[in-house]
Design a protein around this nucleic acid. Structure first.
Ligand SMILES: Nc1nc2c(ncn2[C@H]2C[C@H](O)[C@@H](COP(=O)(O)OP(=O)(O)OP(=O)(O)O)O2)c(=O)[nH]1
Ligand SMILES: [Mg+2]
Ligand SMILES: [Mg+2]
Ligand SMILES: [Zn+2]
Length: 582
DNA sequence: GCCGTTTTCGGCCCGACTGTTTTCAGTCG
């Protein structure tokens, strides 16, 4: 009894918006499997998306009229949220979970298998999960029992080609995959290619490569491009007049859409997405007596094309400011564009220096001299060396004595690079309780202090939050580095309460990092947006461990743009070092 | 299930590709 009560108290404290959103998202998936009305499924998905993006915890909104003001939340969903907040779960979902075999959810992850086919496989062919499906596909029993041989064949080729690469790519991997492909397609002369999708929106992970092909030769369609792809040892998932879906030899999914001069704007707009952004734009168009699709913006009354050749023209005709691709996530950009209040975003040219870089003095593999030379080449006004502190022994963290020797070494490098301000900093570990890995007397000898949590010294996230908040009180600390500690595809977030951290950062006048390492992208863009809203300054940096990795700055910039950051929000957009150090 | 400055009912973004569909369902973007 006591245990039950205890658990209840704990769970009510842990129902954050992500958890609530996941519940509605799963509910939508299971209802879809059951054949529930599609609009209901869509309604739950929409509610899930809106809850995920909400700044205020729904927990605090339960029982208030504000909850019903959230788009997509009506009486029925509000009641379900109340149940989730009070009990930690949703009985409707629990019921569906026990009713529907989890194997069904596995089946719909297979290409070409949706809810209907999954149920057919389950009920008619006795396929209980993905493993059984692959088995029955391989030994031919599925087809011999009457399953479509054509469909079976095409799923089989797709599955074998996808293999291990079914996971989402890092932004840098997708960028490389896209440009490698476009390079080899230059053979198929006669097209301009535009990269769209989540890659153009600079999401931190990318599911596939979406490309619009614009023929530069009259009468040219997709056929010559398809021929070129055929030589490349991949496989086609679909091949039509307007669209090709193709898997590279490495199993990367590529979608290609054909455009022309008149519709290239509409096509790029559609193919850049996001889906939610598209749906909202199309709904807005509808309300204005217009129709938007990938071929253009059309007047309902006479069906005439009113815009289509450029994205700018389409947004303008809809009464909107131009919306940068990074912002197209339906996090309020359409509403802000309606009233002309979108920010001017930071860009590569705003960046005056790098605030987080390593050298051979800790775990970097380029020397101070090499890093300085590279930074100078990039046109930077300053570079901060932030090698690891003593507790980071796996990363060759430096003792105080080594740190002093590094100061001397940096002094020597400075004399060779008069145009670059080289700052001696450190990436100092945040220890239990918020103590920093060097004492204040040592920190006082440094020009710039970046601090980060590298080890979860406790599984209690409250203690981690407390440590970070305390660390932010330190007078020498300038930047909180990679606040969530996530490593995309490897390790989740450390679970600290970022709301509290942002409040503490603001109170103490500290910046939070936007780390450009493709595997980190930390802060994540949604939290960058929150930081900007809270007036917390951002430190964009590369966290480079080699000279080449100084270019990670481009990803930090993209991620900051995705979080609506302008140059004024970015501390290293100031050219003047004295101002930076104030 | 949600929503409304024409609606409290009847709509909900819109289209490509595939298969066996001779007029559409399923899946996907
Ligand atoms: N209007 C509309 N557009 C869609 C829909 N689904 C996808 N799109 C558009 C917007 C997407 O950004 C674009 C490419 O689709 P993808 O499935 O590749 O999604 P996206 O690239 O955004 O994310 P990803 O990282 O690939 O999962 O196609 C849809 O249901 N309706
Ligand atoms: Mg995509
Ligand atoms: Mg795609
Ligand atoms: Zn670092």
């Amino acid at each position: 009894m006591v245990n039950l009560l205890y658990r209840r108290v704990v769970s009510t404290k842990n129902v954050n918006n992500g958890v609530v959103a996941d519940i509605f998202s799963e509910l939508a998936d299971l209802l879809e499997l059951k054949g529930e009305q599609p609009f209901k499924v869509v309604a739950y998905r929409r509610a899930a998306n809106n809850i995920r993006r909400l700044d205020t915890p729904v927990e605090e909104l339960v029982g208030t009229a504000q909850l019903l003001e959230v788009p997509g939340i009506g009486e029925a969903i509000a009641e379900k949220i109340r149940e989730i907040v009070e009990t930690g779960k949703l009985s409707l979902l629990e019921g569906l979970r026990s009713e529907l075999d989890p194997g069904l959810k596995e089946l719909v992850t297979i290409p070409r298998i949706g809810p209907k086919t999954a149920l057919l496989l389950y009920n008619k062919y006795g396929i209980r999960n993905r493993r059984q499906f692959e088995q029955a596909l391989a030994d031919g029993t599925l087809v011999s029992k009457g399953f479509s041989a054509v469909l079976a064949k095409s799923i089989q080729t797709a599955l074998s080609q996808i293999g291990e690469s079914s996971k989402r790519m890092l932004l840098i991997e997708a960028t490389d995959a896209a440009y490698t492909l476009l390079d080899s397609l230059q053979q198929a002369n006669g097209y301009d290619f535009r990269v769209c999708g989540s890659l153009r929106r600079a999401k931190d992970t990318v599911g596939d490569v979406d490309i619009v092909a614009l023929p530069t030769v009259p009468e040219r369609k997709l056929q010559p491009l398809a021929l070129e792809l055929e030589k490349m040892n991949g496989s086609f998932l679909a091949k039509g007049e307007s669209k090709i879906s193709w898997l590279t030899p490495h199993g990367v999914h590529v979608d290609i859409r054909l455009a022309n001069k008149e519709n290239i704007g509409a096509m790029a707009l559609y193919f850049t997405g996001s889906k939610e952004h598209n749906v909202k734009l199309r709904t807005l168009a509808m309300k204005k007596g217009l129709k938007l699709n990938e071929y253009g913006l059309f007047r309902d009354s006479d069906g005439d094309l009113v815009a289509g050749a450029s994205e700018e023209e389409i947004y303008r005709t809809l009464g909107l400011q131009y919306i940068e691709p990074e912002l197209r996530e339906d996090t309020g950009e359409i509403e802000q564009a309606e009233s002309g209040k979108l920010p001017t975003l930071v860009d590569d040219g705003s960046i005056q220096g790098d605030l987080h870089a390593h050298s051979t003095w800790s775990d970097g593999s380029s020397t101070l001299e090499e890093m300085a030379t590279a930074a100078e080449k990039l046109g930077y006004k300053y570079l901060v060396f932030t090698d690891h502190s003593k507790s980071e022994s796996v990363a060759h963290g430096m003792t105080e004595a080594v740190l002093r020797r590094q100061a001397t070494a940096i002094e020597k490098v400075r004399s060779k690079h008069p145009k670059l301000e080289i700052l001696h900093g450190s990436e100092v570990d945040i220890l239990r309780g918020g103590k920093l890995d060097y004492d204040d007397a040592t920190l006082a000898t440094l020009d710039f202090v970046v601090a980060s949590l590298h080890r979860k010294f406790s599984s209690d996230t409250n203690l981690l939050t407390e440590a970070v908040v305390n660390a932010l009180e330190n007078r020498y600390l300038k930047v909180l580095a990679h606040p969530t500690g996530r490593l995309l595809g490897r390790r989740g977030e450390n679970g600290i309460d970022l709301d509290k951290v942002l409040v503490a950062a603001r109170r103490n006048g500290k910046a939070v990092e936007v780390n450009g390492q493709p595997r980190r992208m930390d802060l994540p863009w949604m939290w960058v947006k929150r930081a900007v809203e809270e007036g917390v300054k951002l430190a964009l940096d590369s966290d480079a461990h080699t000279t080449g990795e100084l270019l990670n700055m481009q990803f930090a910039v993209k991620n900051a743009r995705k979080g609506w950051a302008g140059a004024k929000d970015v501390m290293n957009s100031v050219p003047n070092v004295a101002k930076l150090l104030r």
